[in-house]
């Protein structure tokens, strides 16, 4: 079921895309457009939520656990 949803989502996204030439990508390269503009603070946030909530993960590979409770 999830795979079907994923395929449909990609299809919708792909059909909504417009061609963006390389010289038109200056905005996409801006610091504020990064997935995580400040990696160090992002790392801390992820660790806090990982330690203090019942679910975690989602955006990539995580690190090891901890005894935080």
């Amino acid at each position: 079921m999830k795979n079907i949803f994923y395929i449909i989502l990609i299809s919708i996204v792909a059909s909504a895309c417009t061609t963006v030439n390389p010289w038109e990508r200056g905005i996409l390269a801006k610091t504020e457009m990064a997935w995580e503009p400040d990696p160090l603070m992002g790392q801390l946030q992820e660790h806090v939520y990982f330690s203090k909530e019942g679910s975690n993960g989602g955006y990539g590979a995580g690190g090891g656990g901890c005894g935080c409770n």
């Binding site: 994923y6 989502l9 792909a14 997935w35 989602g58």
Partner: peptide
């Protein structure tokens, strides 16, 4: 990860 247009980019991940 997909560039949608020159102002928009989208990323989806399954884990």
């Amino acid at each position: 990860t997909q560039v949608i247009n020159k102002h928009t980019i989208l990323q989806t991940t399954l884990g």
